[in-house]
Design a protein around this nucleic acid. Structure first.
Length: 367
DNA sequence: ACGATTTGACCATT
DNA sequence: AATGGTCAAATCGT
């Protein structure tokens, strides 16, 4: 665990959270099944006990992970790229996001697109960029005018079977051949979870490669849509009016990087107190985030909300129009990934969002 | 035999 | 017309 990169930790965290939530759903299903039957057997009790133990294991693993993070549960920043492409499973990509009632006209744009630069350390035997966990199929290669290296075109392997429209383009950098510029388009709607395992390197002569390096690409943390998770819209409605995200412009030197500064304000309600957390223990090192004036610490919160997530933004390769975070309810301990995305892919700058603009992955997030 | 990759042709956009 | 993106037949690898 010591050697685990921040990115891997966040991957792990997300997997654990998802595993826990799925287990809770299973528990719920079992309860329904048991209550509909006349008697409960010892078999049912065994199942219940097993689920409790699974949940306890998840909780233990999660607390161990949290304990590793410095700053009292304020995990450090990840090395690169956002934990999610913003995709939340429930938000499940563009289509799901547009499930709002239509009262707020939501401009739908062409596919979102964002670029990530991936550096491959030379001489490590890993010349070929590593897989990003998703399964891609190359469908074309093209010489690009003015570029030394050809551009490779990839689409999700599950395009035909599941209609997943995610694609990516891989272009080796002219000035630094160890750098690959990977442009992602569209979100994965397939149900295949990205593997966090590092696949074997590609052959040396394969200049164009299929992907990234140690820093996993954006999608890796993106929770994948689950067939049974279809309530994001309901949740948004439940919380209508209770949640606001305000992004502000940072006019400091950081603006030179054309980054977005974001300030979040999540008003708490008696039953659902929650907050945002950053995975960076030092907000000042994240160019586009400011320390919360209310917390005065490294954490980014609205008291008494609990900080418990991470923040991503354009500097990590996500589209400027999108921001993802993990929110956690202080009362229930439930976690969820939340994603805010602006209309028309405009940068998140100086905008205010109501909760219908925010999608939550976890249907059980709000009690 | 089957799935993945290669590669020239074709299409869309500017 | 030039360029980038995609298609699909041919080829390759297992």
């Amino acid at each position: 665990m010591e050697n685990m990169g921040e990115w891997e930790k966040m991957n792990l965290l997300n997997e654990l959270i998802q595993g826990r939530e799925l287990t809770k759903q299973l528990q719920h299903q079992l309860h329904l099944a048991v209550s509909s039957s006349s008697s409960s057997s010892s078999h049912d009790q065994t199942q219940e006990m097993l689920i409790h133990r699974i949940l306890a294991s998840y909780d233990k693993a999660l607390s161990m992970l949290n304990a590793e993070a410095p700053g009292g549960g304020c995990p450090r920043r990840m090395s690169e790229s956002p934990p999610s492409l913003g995709g939340s499973p429930m938000s499940g990509g563009d289509s799901d996001r547009d499930l709002n009632d239509g009262s707020t006209p939501r401009k739908r744009k062409a596919m979102q697109r964002w670029t990530k630069r991936v550096h491959v350390a030379p001489g490590t035997g890993l010349e070929g960029p590593l897989d990003d966990g998703f399964s891609w199929r190359k469908y074309g290669q093209k010489d690009i005018l003015g570029a030394k290296y050809p551009r490779g075109y990839y689409r999700c392997t599950h395009r035909n079977v599941q209609g997943c429209l995610a694609t990516k383009q891989v272009q080796r950098s002219d000035d630094d051949p160890t750098v690959f510029e990977i442009t992602y388009r569209g979100r994965h709607t397939c149900s295949h979870h990205p593997a966090t395992v590092v696949p074997p390197p590609l052959p040396e002569n394969q200049t164009d490669s299929n992907a990234s390096v140690d820093a996993a690409p954006l999608q890796v943390i993106q929770p994948q849509p689950q067939p049974n998770q279809t309530h994001s819209q309901d949740i948004a409605f439940d919380f209508r009016g209770g949640l606001t995200v305000l992004t502000q412009t940072l006019d400091s030197k950081n603006d030179n990087h054309n980054l977005t500064s974001s300030m979040f304000n999540f008003p708490s309600t008696p039953d659902n107190i929650f907050g945002i957390m950053s995975n960076n223990s030092d907000f000042s090192s994240i160019p586009h985030f400011l320390p919360s004036s209310t917390s005065g610490t490294n954490c980014f919160s609205v008291s008494p909300a609990r900080l418990d997530g991470f923040q991503v933004g354009p500097s990590f390769g996500a589209p400027e129009s999108e921001l993802s975070m993990i929110v956690s309810a202080a009362t229930s301990g439930n976690n969820s990934q939340a994603t805010v995305r602006s209309d028309s892919d405009l940068p998140l700058r100086g905008m205010e969002f109501a909760n219908e603009d925010i999608s939550f992955d976890n249907p059980g997030f709000f009690p």
